[in-house]
Design a binder for these strands. Structure first.
Length: 888
DNA sequence: GAGGTCCGGGG
DNA sequence: GTGTACGGACCTC
């Protein structure tokens, strides 16, 4: 029988661990295979007397292993300690360490210890020889098997996975608070199935009857009903928007509170669990995978906001039902029509989560990584890069006779942190040549760091150590700033070996991908693309790992060797291009060089030159290092290191080009900018790059400024929105959105914003501090208030574009039109503020503002004058102002 | 530019 | 479960 594996655990049976591997059969049924006979073990360097007598110990045998740090030919004499119960390992390990001994591989999860030794990895298909063991009641999978033998199959296509999307609703006891599981019940749960369940694709369960609602007596009954439905439908994926940090912990905590065992895992003897960590929750449902579109989309898409409403409208063009938190209780307790709305709201959220999950292949990348690093999908989703790399490394090191060290202790990490501050240098970043450049060929090194590792055989196991064997110059490669490494003839390093395999495998997969694409085999294209992506991500992670203070095999000399060879490579490349070819390298960062080709204006010609230079340079590069022509910057405007805008043309093959605007380090979307800021910035960049007409760009900007001054910009382009994260009165400083919330509460207590609500605001004219002049846009419309165009000019419009214009030598005053017939401020009209100025008690002074234009300042300017020429005055909370007598 | 702080999604 | 434990945007020095 073939099983694709998703998860594993173990239980103790007659003082021996029994492994349970969960997966799917070819038919798409859930399956569990039982494996007994594998025992937990770890290594120690010496065997204390107490350990020999410990009843946990099954056997102790001497072994020889190679320590993975520094080139060495000697083997360590160690002892392999095999015990009965995996869960007892930590205490034995800690006791050994306390006694002054050293332990190895004593912090590897039992399931992963087994898989590593058996050569099994996540999502592999296993051919199971054995006997069906349907009589076991400890798991609830459709198929159960006792293993006699396992064969690893070559099959890559995934089984048919089954998903369940869910969304819960709950109402807080006190209006305006976020509900908590300790106190507030779940009132309703919507469920959306990836395939029909009892003839339905979706359902809503609750304990208030309604049309299309499956009703229970109470919350208790509803939650038990939920457990039954999950087990009955038996999903592989449990999906929900922010399910990781809200729905699932809430459900589990609620069940704990109501003394309902959370028995919806694939084992009958283990409940689902949730644990609160520093920042959020960690959840586990054994045998199933929890997938949160919120978490996944946040990593792979760039949006200003990641609310379900926002994401669904961006990605699906769909919207949530319009229900405010403040009306939920009313709907839950009110008439049937309102209740129906609540039901529909709940259902929509689960539907949207399911669509996002399914239509955007959100898991593909993680499936690819999981396949390569061998960790289960859930661990890849929840864990970081370190775990992936280390698991992979341990398997490879073990296979080659190396022992793998424990995770570093707190003290060790602190020590490394100090070391690192002194030592680790990064990539080489050239100072960009200022000003606009045209016809730039962009070349970069193909997988620079992995290639350097392979070229120079960089690895902890090839690093020449202080006490190890000595070598002649010919036998080693000496890095510019870092360690020396023995050449592959003496020993090939494990990391270079791993990278060689990964890179060859990826080339192979890409070849097959090309063919599958040509054949139009969509399923295979997806599989192969997933795989090459997984390999790429893994291969690029090795470099960073070795310079990471929390890594098990960390070494500064290794990390520094890689970056210093990188810097040397890029520097030499720059020199050759400038000396031998006579072109100017105007910018470069880590693995790329940008070369300005004078008097070459045709894309085809630029590509020819770029390709020629790359090829010729590559011929003289050591090892497998390869420079390649990547794209053209028709125009390139650097602002600073790591910040630029460019009009790029990327070769698509067959003489075709993809055109786009490349931006690095320039934020066009920021939470505290209104739409007008982003829009103006984008358009200014567009005009500058595509038309190369700075006059027109300035003019465009001035036109926007003029419309702003004349009040012709629609208000929705000037709105800034922020979330109220606490009660408005508990904000330490004055913040615009909190002030607006206070005003809204005062005006209409029934419609007071509550914690978690999004508050939109605009800034109106006046002399008070900015935050006090923040207003609800609806109120502004209603009362016909005027917006503060000076504020928008100075704080929203100018800052983003200023740096762009600066790079083109357009000064701020030129931009503002100063010195010309009419400056922008006069164009926009001055803000009158010369009114009576009573004395202000010092305690009331909260800031400063300009006498002429009313612009607020947190402290007076050095000159005591505003940019518009007006004097800076004190301003009080009440909006009065007085002349600053001594602005120092 | 480095170092510290805030905050997210969900109801 | 032989486990942990963010990351980007923003602000100040």
């Amino acid at each position: 029988m073939l099983v694709q594996i998703l998860d594993a655990d173990y239980v103790m049976l007659e003082n021996k661990p029994l492994l349970r591997i969960y997966g799917k059969t070819e038919k798409g049924d859930s399956a569990c295979v039982f494996y007994s006979g594998f025992m937990p073990y770890f290594y120690v360097d010496e065997v204390p007397e107490w350990l020999k007598k410990d009843p946990q110990v099954f056997s102790i045998e001497p072994v020889e292993r190679v320590y993975p740090m520094f080139y060495r030919t000697d083997k360590m004499k160690l002892f392999k300690v095999t015990i009965h119960d995996p869960s007892r390992t930590p205490e034995l390990r800690d006791k050994v360490i306390e006694g002054g001994g050293t332990a190895y591989e004593a912090d590897i999860l039992f399931k992963y210890r087994f898989m590593a030794d058996a050569g099994i990895g996540s999502l592999m298909w296993l051919d199971i020889k054995g006997a069906s063991s349907a009589n076991t009641s400890t798991v609830r999978t459709k198929t159960k098997f006792e293993v006699k033998g396992i064969n690893i199959m070559d099959k890559v296509a995934n089984s048919d996975f089954r998903s369940l999307a869910l969304d819960i609703e709950c109402v807080a006891e006190n209006q305006g608070e976020v509900p908590t599981a300790e106190r507030d019940p779940i009132i309703m749960i919507s469920l959306v199935f990836s395939e029909e369940y009892n003839g339905k694709k979706e359902m809503v369960i609750s304990y208030r009857p309604g049309s299309n609602v499956q009703s229970y007596n109470d919350e208790n009954g509803m939650l038990k009903g939920l457990i039954d439905i999950i087990n009955d439908f038996d999903p592989d994926f449990i999906v929900g928007y922010n399910i990781n940090n809200f729905d699932l912990p809430y459900i589990i905590e609620r069940m704990q509170r109501l003394k309902i065992p959370a028995m919806f895992t694939r084992a009958t003897d283990k409940s689902a669990w949730t644990k609160k960590l520093a920042m959020g929750y960690r959840n586990n449902v054994l045998g199933r995978i929890i997938a949160d579109p919120f978490a996944l989309i946040k990593k792979d898409f760039s949006f200003k906001r990641y609310s379900l409403e926002n994401v669904a409208s961006e990605l699906l063009g769909e919207h949530k039902e319009d229900v405010k938190y403040s009306e939920m209780e009313k709907l839950w307790k009110g008439d049937q029509k309102g209740y129906d709305r609540l039901v529909s709201y709940c259902l929509t959220d689960a539907r949207l989560a399911m669509r996002l999950f399914g239509e955007f292949n959100l898991l593909d990348k993680y499936i690819g990584i999981s396949r390569i690093c061998c960790l289960f999908l859930q661990d890849v989703l929840d864990g970081g890069e370190t775990q992936r790399i280390e698991h992979y490394l341990m398997r490879e090191f073990n296979r080659n006779g190396y022992i793998f060290p424990l995770k570093p202790s707190q003290e060790e990490m602190a020590e490394r942190d100090n070391q690192r501050k002194v030592g680790l240098k990064g990539g080489f970043v050239l100072d960009p040549e200022p000003g606009m450049h045209e016809n730039v060929a962009v070349m970069d090194f193909k997988s620079m760091y992995p290639s350097l590792i392979r070229t120079y055989n960089i690895c902890p196991t090839t690093l020449v150590g202080p006490d190890g064997p000595k070598f002649t110059e010919d036998e080693i490669s000496k890095s510019p700033e870092g360690g020396s490494f023995v050449k592959p003839e003496i020993r090939k390093g494990i990391v270079p070996y791993i990278l060689e395999n990964l890179m060859n495998e990826r080339a192979n997969v890409k070849k097959r991908l090309k063919k599958a694409t040509k054949d139009g085999n969509a399923a295979e294209v997806r599989e192969l693309n997933t795989k090459q992506l997984g390999i790429k991500i893994m291969a690029n992670a090795f470099y960073g790992h070795m310079g990471y203070p929390r890594a098990r095999i960390y070494n500064m000399d290794v990390a520094n060797a890689i970056t210093s060879w990188g810097r040397q490579t890029i520097q030499k490349t720059k020199d050759i291009i400038e000396k031998d070819y006579g072109y100017k390298v105007i910018y470069g960062d880590t693995d790329s060089v940008m070369v300005e080709l004078d008097k070459v204006f045709d894309n085809k010609k630029i590509a020819e030159v770029g390709n020629k230079i790359s090829e010729e340079i590559t011929k003289n590069l050591p090892g497998i290092m390869e420079l390649e022509f990547e794209k053209i910057f028709k125009r390139f405007l650097p602002l600073a290191k790591k910040r630029y805008a460019a009009w790029a043309f990327i070769p698509k093959g067959g003489g075709e080009w993809v055109e786009k605007i490349d931006m690095k380090g320039i934020e066009t979307v920021r939470r505290d900018w209104c739409d007008l800021s982003s829009e103006t910035l984008r358009n200014v960049i567009d005009i500058i790059l595509k038309e190369n007409d700075r006059e027109r760009a300035v003019q465009y900007f001035q036109n926007i400024a003029k419309s702003l001054g004349e009040g012709n910009i629609p208000m929705d382009k000037l709105v800034v929105t922020k979330t109220l994260t606490k009660r408005p009165e508990s904000y330490p400083g004055v913040q615009p959105h909190a002030e607006v919330a206070k005003k809204m509460t005062q005006r209409n207590p029934a419609d007071a914003p509550s914690v978690g609500d999004r508050i939109s605001y605009v800034i109106v004219k006046g002399t008070q501090l900015l935050s006090y002049r923040a207003e609800d846009p609806e109120y502004v419309t209603e009362k016909g208030l005027h917006l503060d165009s000076i504020y928008y000019m100075e704080n929203q419009l100018l800052p983003p574009v200023e740096r762009i214009f600066e790079a083109l030598n357009v000064t701020k005053s030129e931009l503002m039109g100063k010195g010309k017939q009419m400056n922008l401020f006069s164009m926009m009209g001055k803000q009158a503020s010369k009114k009576a100025k009573p004395e202000i008690p010092v305690a009331d002074i909260i800031g400063f503002s300009c006498e002429e234009c009313g612009r607020p300042y947190r402290r007076p300017t050095l000159t005591g004058y505003c940019e518009c020429g007006g004097k800076i005055l004190f301003s009080s909370a009440k909006g009065n102002a007085d002349v600053v007598k001594n602005p120092s």
